[in-house]
């Protein structure tokens, strides 16, 4: 993609839509905060000019809809002006969530790959288990996450692991489904060629099926890592607001601190974007090294 094409096809449209979103956000902040401010001023018996009134709607301490600059200010204050390991820092909370996400993602990926290999090699598993994997994802696991956390803490499992288990449950599915597809992706000619070499099942797995599945692996890992972040965040909701982005959301909702909620949401989004980008970059490098076209 040439530089000019990139600017015309990507930067300008994306930038202008982001600007529109920002403008709509400001208008929404004004119109949603105005009723409260009007009421507040009437009680206080103050009359303001319209400019003053506008400024006031943008700087309420607990606005219905925080203005973008309030969120930015809160983010700035909670990431750069406090020590990263203090409890007020969003970096600290993001790190707590991130560690659970990564642990859950690692376990989920391993489980997903193991299940996929089992399904590809054992016909009975293919027939009996695959339909239930799909059904397992119609159970709203996020809905029972609080119960799982409470139960695990009742039998003495606390800390990182319960949250990571929720992430595992959410992330194994895309990996398992993607890997089944990937391990079955070598075409019949290649499989037959390997058979004429009289390879063992293990050699077939290592030398043909796994290399063929690598592009599928990274595509499904991108979905899986986003899912495990969501799992970790929801897993933090019932821990009684101790630490993590989820607990920040919960605390914000208890005290109607909308600015805090928005800041936590943006922190979570930044983590999500970083994680997905990291997987994407690693995937591109590995695919390029293995000589595969990027899907």
């Amino acid at each position: 993609m040439s530089g000019r094409g990139f600017i015309q096809d990507r930067l300008v449209p994306v930038g202008s839509i982001l600007l529109v979103i920002l403008a709509v956000w400001y208008v929404a902040a004004y119109s949603m905060n105005a009723p409260f401010q009007r009421d507040f001023d009437r009680r206080a018996g103050e009359t303001r000019t319209s400019v003053e009134f506008l400024m006031k709607t943008m700087s309420q301490p607990k606005p219905t809809m925080p203005a973008p600059h309030q969120v930015a200010e809160n983010l700035w204050k909670n990431t750069l002006t406090v020590k990263p390991w203090s409890k007020r820092s969003l970096v600290y909370h993001a790190w707590i969530t991130l560690s659970a996400t990564l642990l859950g993602f690692a376990m989920g990926t391993a489980l997903g790959v193991a299940i996929a290999i089992g399904i590809v090699y054992i016909p009975a598993l293919d027939r009996s288990f695959l339909p239930w994997i799909i059904t397992s994802q119609t159970i709203p696991i996020l809905a029972i996450a609080p119960m799982i956390i409470v139960l695990l803490s009742a039998i003495g499992v606390t800390g990182l692991l319960p949250k990571a288990l929720i992430s595992t449950y959410l992330s194994f599915f895309p990996v398992a489904v993607g890997m089944v597809k990937g391990l079955r992706s070598p075409d019949v000619l290649h499989l037959d060629l390997m058979r004429t070499y009289s390879v063992t099942k293990m050699q077939m797995l290592w030398k043909l099926r796994i290399p063929a599945s690598v592009p599928f692996f990274f595509t499904s890992m991108k979905v899986a890592i986003a899912a495990s972040l969501i799992g970790a965040i929801v897993g933090e909701l019932p821990t009684g607001a101790v630490a993590g982005i989820g607990s920040k959301l919960l605390a914000g909702s208890y005290y109607s601190q909308t600015v805090d909620i928005f800041a936590a949401l943006i922190a979570g989004s930044v983590v999500a974007i970083l994680l997905v980008t990291a997987v994407d970059v690693v995937g591109r490098i590995v695919n390029a090294r293995m000589g595969a076209r990027n899907p």
């Binding site: 996020l142 991108k222 986003a226 972040l229 969501i230 965040i233 929801v234 982005i245 989820g246 959301l249 919960l250 914000g252 909702s253 909308t258 909620i261 928005f262 936590a264 949401l265 979570g268 989004s269 999500a272 974007i273 997905v276």
Partner: peptide
Amino acid sequence: SALPMIGIAPI
């Protein structure tokens, strides 16, 4: 689509 949109629930 990759963001934890569930977080908007409290808002």
